[in-house]
Write a protein that binds this DNA or RNA. Structure first.
Lengths: 200, 200
DNA sequence: ACATTTGCTGACCATTTGGTCAAACCATTT
DNA sequence: AAATGGTTTGACCAAATGGTCAGCAAATGT
């Protein structure tokens, strides 16, 4: 199925690691080659340029995020359970992808988003789902854009900013991870409660 | 009072702009010189090295953040008003500093935090303030670490991630700014409500 | 008027870095 | 065994980049 050779896989894995930690400007082709255990010339044999390789990595991670954002299957599950499950999955997802990399690169070069804008849906399914539920009268009135942003912020930022939070709260790495174990459920509680109560 | 010459001010301003948008690796000494309207040689005349100039900029912004985090004057104002006012001020503050720059550079080189750890307070005043209020029985039981992280996340992330939120919600730049006008108050409402209700 | 310090710069340097290329290597085919 | 075609690399190149330095110019001191 996968049309990638062993070398290509190694390169992409190495490139991902280096780009995500160093950013485009900070990444070095030699470092990627070393990490992949091949020569720099081989790197250029498979991927013409740094720009080329970067786009490959960026697009892949970006696609993952976009897919997640637009994933919201409209089955019969009750919205509370659905939301809680989504938040837990969202959190796990965020821990394994470098969102900081994406945000940082977009900040450096906003065109990275402009090029993608065409492909993506105009409005996150999450928002329309809850707006519909609201119209049917199954839920108090809330601005679902706010709920959407709240959910993303509460899930993403504690991961993005983990190091600084560890410092300002006095927790060490282990404490913080422990602390984060139950965190998604607290977020779910808060949002479910806010939705039930209504948020304007 | 200010012991900086006109040239030094221009350089620092230019360096801040360039470092914050491009990061350390992406920043070019020539670009900083151009932005400041002087020669590259003059840049090195005032600040020995890129590293040196970077530290100056980073430390300044970092200090601003650390000061804000530890700012929580324990006056007689009611905690609800105090919290709401703080959130509004926090939000304005975040809009004028590049938090993404700080987080990105820390991610690239965690030592930047390790060196600072000594100077900073072990625990944010915010947390102890509300923990005390709780003990006196003026408030339901909540994990104040959670409240602390909630507040930071809800304020910072919508600014950090503005571009992607604009895309996934279908708002343009103007709409989003409009939307953000009342946002701090919604955050305050949510947190005050959560604290009154109790959060575990 | 002369000397000295200070601010500033063009020209230059050493190193780094993305990228190229001819040649070697290796598995498969003929 | 020779030819073939894909893979890999050391050696090399040109441009970019952080940094240096002798010297100029303008203020400042004597």
């Amino acid at each position: 199925m996968s049309e990638l050779t062993e070398s290509e896989k190694k390169i992409l894995e190495a490139a991902k690691k280096v780009f995500e930690t160093q950013g485009y400007s900070g990444a070095r082709m030699q470092q990627i080659a070393d990490e992949a255990g091949i020569s720099k010339a081989s790197l250029h044999y498979y991927f013409r340029s740094k720009e080329n390789l970067f786009e490959r990595i960026f697009d892949e991670t970006m696609s993952d995020f976009m897919e997640l954002v637009s994933t919201w299957n409209d089955d019969s599950e009750h919205w509370e359970d659905k939301l809680r499950r989504f938040i837990c999955e969202f959190f796990v997802f965020l821990k394994t992808r470098s969102l900081l990399f994406i945000i940082g690169e977009i900040n450096r070069n906003p065109d990275l988003l402009v090029n993608r804008r065409k492909k993506s849906k105009p409005k996150a399914k999450f928002i329309t789902y809850f707006e519909n539920l609201q119209e049917v009268g199954k839920m108090k009135t809330s601005n679902m854009y706010v709920v959407y942003i709240f959910m993303h912020s509460l899930c993403a930022y504690p991961i993005l900013n983990a190091r600084m939070f560890q410092m300002t709260t006095g927790m060490n790495n282990h404490d913080y991870e422990q602390f984060m174990n139950n965190y998604p459920n607290i977020v779910a509680d808060l949002l479910i409660n806010a939705l039930k109560r209504g948020l304007n």
